[in-house]
């Protein structure tokens, strides 16, 4: 028998840690989605698709800027000492992933912005003459455009990794303390971005391509889930206890039904039928993927706070 009686009852700490609410999962989801969008958009730029009137090159960087700002807004809402936000940019703490992330975002914004200048959509042309001049200058240098594509892919990968590394660096929370978490969030971000393009593109080629890519990402995500779970199950007692929160504990219904069932397996089945021309493409599968990606962040953030050393 072990019976503990503790007189402490600090808000948000006791009886179980609950410091992060909806803002952090939303921030991590939007960060992952933008990371995936940057990789996909960068890939299309690299392939020279920006010369055609295809969706990815024309609008994705613009949408990513809005989504990223939404994520940053959610993060800002979570801060308890909001007026001191600027302190993040007065220092660089080499051991703090959050510090790396803050500075990474300072590079991601201009990379996305330059990406928007490669092709300014027709209805916006002439509105800001200097942007048109810069766009013309960029288009006169194809090698530079390729480098912008590469930079977007690279920074997107780092951003997607960062959303996982941020959590996995907390050794006091055994569920997050996995070397597979960055991979899980990166693949999930790619899958969400592919689903997002699939959902809103009007280009038939792009829809088909992204649906196929999403199927590959979803399949890969299942393997990464396997690695994540196996890694924790074969670890120390506290890590085993932590992963059981997802497998058969209080978070199991959300994990199995929302994340694995409706977020991965069902859309994968629908999209496999669609790309094999058994059924038509509908909005259902990409919507499920996006909802599943958001549910994954909620489940991991909330369950992770419940996991602890004891």
């Amino acid at each position: 028998m072990q019976e503990l009686t503790i007189t402490r009852h600090n808000a948000l700490i006791d009886p179980l840690l609950s410091i992060w609410s909806w803002q952090i999962p939303v921030y991590l989801f939007l960060g992952g989605l933008v990371a995936g969008i940057m990789i996909i958009s960068g890939y299309f730029v690299l392939q020279g698709q920006y010369k055609k009137n295809v969706f990815s090159c024309f609008y994705l960087p613009h949408i990513a800027l809005v989504l990223l700002s939404g994520g940053m807004g959610a993060l800002f809402l979570d801060l308890e000492h909001k007026l001191y936000f600027w302190r993040l940019f007065t220092t660089f703490q080499v051991t703090a992933p959050m510090s790396w992330g803050s500075w990474l975002l300072m590079i991601v914004y201009p990379a996305l912005w330059v990406n928007t200048l490669i092709r300014i959509p027709e209805r916006y042309q002439g509105k800001v003459p200097i942007f048109d001049r810069w766009s013309a200058a960029l288009n006169a240098r194809p090698v530079l455009i390729k480098n912008i594509g590469i930079a977007n892919m690279l920074l997107g990968t780092l951003l997607g990794m960062y959303t996982g590394v941020l959590l996995s660096s907390f050794g006091a929370r055994p569920l997050w303390n996995s070397a597979m978490l960055w991979m899980l969030f990166l693949v999930s971000g790619l899958s969400a971005a592919a689903a997002f393009v699939h959902l809103i593109t009007t280009d038939e080629y792009e829809r088909e391509l992204l649906a196929k890519a999403d199927n590959a990402f979803l399949t890969l995500e299942l393997f990464v889930f396997g690695g994540f779970i196996t890694g924790l199950l074969t670890n120390s007692r506290v890590h085993k206890d932590a992963v059981h929160l997802l497998l058969d504990g209080p978070f199991a219904p959300y994990f199995w039904v929302l994340v694995i069932g409706m977020g991965v397996l069902l859309p994968l089945a629908i999209q496999l039928l669609a790309v094999n021309h058994k059924i038509k493409h509908t909005a259902l599968a990409p919507l499920l993927v996006l909802a599943g990606g958001l549910a994954l962040r909620f489940v991991i953030v909330f369950a992770g706070q419940f996991s602890r050393w004891s």
């Binding site: 948000l12 700490i13 840690l17 308890e80 703090a96 050794g171 006091a172």
Partner: peptide
């Protein structure tokens, strides 16, 4: 005066010794 209230330190403490 430097703390932004991100709560990372609260999550990182295995002893639950910190609070906001």
């Amino acid at each position: 005066d430097k703390c932004i209230g991100c709560k990372g330190c609260v999550a990182s403490c295995p002893y639950g010794a910190r609070f906001i």
